[in-house]
Design a protein around this nucleic acid. Structure first.
Length: 306
RNA sequence: GCCGAGAUAGCUCAGUGGUAGAGCGCGGCCCUGAAAAGGCCGGCGUGGGGGGUCCGAUUCCCUCUCUCGGCA
């Protein structure tokens, strides 16, 4: 029996995924499921560069602007919601086209998430306190005793991951490393095609600069000012642009500096995204040329689909 | 034109008679419930050009070029 197809279009920030995705979706009768940890939030259209309303009218988009930014969001929720949408699309006879740049999010769809517990606020608060009192090496030693395999993988300075691994152990009594072996994703059930866009580093960085300038022109400052009046969740607050403008509002530096930092942090982000994608051997790379239009690129991808 | 200061990494600069560092930038990497987050690694260099002293010069001397101050 022929497996059903799921398509992923990933790539670094600002490279032009959204426009290409719409051309592609039209050709194959797909609907788009956003694969972006920040575009799920509402009220953050400009700072997260969500597809425009005209774009969204052309093709149905899912998981865009659906979470209030005062709420936390995470991979587990994303996985659950995205898979539910996927199932619905298959019933309608549509192809799911995942589009976005969050490496962990797409991998969790394809490869699955190990069955574990979510965040436990009280355990974390306790571990956080221990971290600030005794430092990460103390936590790391504890982890080495209860879960040596995880300790081997996690760097002693990476307190975030040490805490998570300890949290899993304290809550389940099992080392996280053994739970992680249990992972089932959609990859076994469906035919998965992953396309990653890439271009010269310089081209990507130019696109980032242009996008950031455009964000400022279209009302970034007002949007972020409004967001800062809310009590943003720790996850929503992480969107590039918020921290940088908050410091500007506090008078720590001028607007040019804020703009420079937003550009720089976006460059670093794009680099990390590419590192993530590069190690995924399943990816079909699509190197885009400077003069190519979104329609032409979509056509190239389409040809590789069958 | 004269006087002074300087010319070292992509940028701003430190330092030394035994071929060089720091911050930022940049490059590479890791990643399972915060992932646009978090963490790790890497100096990426004809030391302005040319001569001299010295076993040895980026460092000392001479000269040229350029830059920045000050005086005209």
């Amino acid at each position: 029996m022929l497996k059903k197809k799921i398509i992923f279009l990933v790539g670094p920030t600002a490279i032009g995924k959204s426009a290409i995705a719409i051309h592609l979706a039209k050709k194959i009768d797909a609907e788009i499921i956003s694969c972006d940890s920040m575009q799920v939030y509402s009220l953050m259209d400009i700072v997260t560069s969500q597809p425009s309303s005209t774009q969204r009218k052309q093709i149905k988009h899912h998981l865009l602007g659906v979470v209030n930014p005062i709420r936390e969001y995470n991979v587990a929720r994303y996985r659950k919601e995205a898979i539910a949408i996927c199932d619905k699309l298959f019933l309608k006879g549509k192809i799911p086209l995942f589009v976005g740049g969050s490496g962990l999010y797409y991998s969790v769809i394809i490869d699955g998430l190990f069955p574990a517990i979510g965040e436990d606020k009280s355990i974390r608060a306790r571990l956080d306190k221990e971290l600030s009192l005794k430092g990460s090496s103390c936590l790391f030693q504890r982890l080495s005793k209860v879960d040596p395999l995880s300790a081997k993988k996690i760097h002693p300075n990476d307190s975030r991951r040490i805490i998570r691994a300890l949290e899993v152990y304290l809550k389940t009594g099992l080392p996280m490393s053994s739970l992680q072996k249990n992972r089932i994703g959609l990859g076994s059930e469906y035919e998965i095609k992953i396309f990653a866009l890439n271009a010269n580093r310089k081209t990507i960085y130019n696109k980032i600069d242009q996008r950031v300038d455009k964000m400022f022109k279209t009302g970034l400052i007002n949007e972020v000012q409004g967001l800062l009046r809310l009590k943003l969740s720790k996850t929503a607050f992480c969107a590039i642009g918020i921290r940088e403008l908050e410091s500007y509002f506090k008078g720590e530096y001028d607007l040019d500096e804020a703009r420079r930092l937003i550009k720089r942090n976006s460059r670093h982000y794009a680099k990390r995204q590419l590192t993530w994608f590069k190690k995924d051997a399943r990816i079909h790379w699509v190197n885009i040329k400077d003069e190519e239009t979104p329609g032409e690129i979509a056509k190239r991808i389409w040809k590789k689909l069958f």
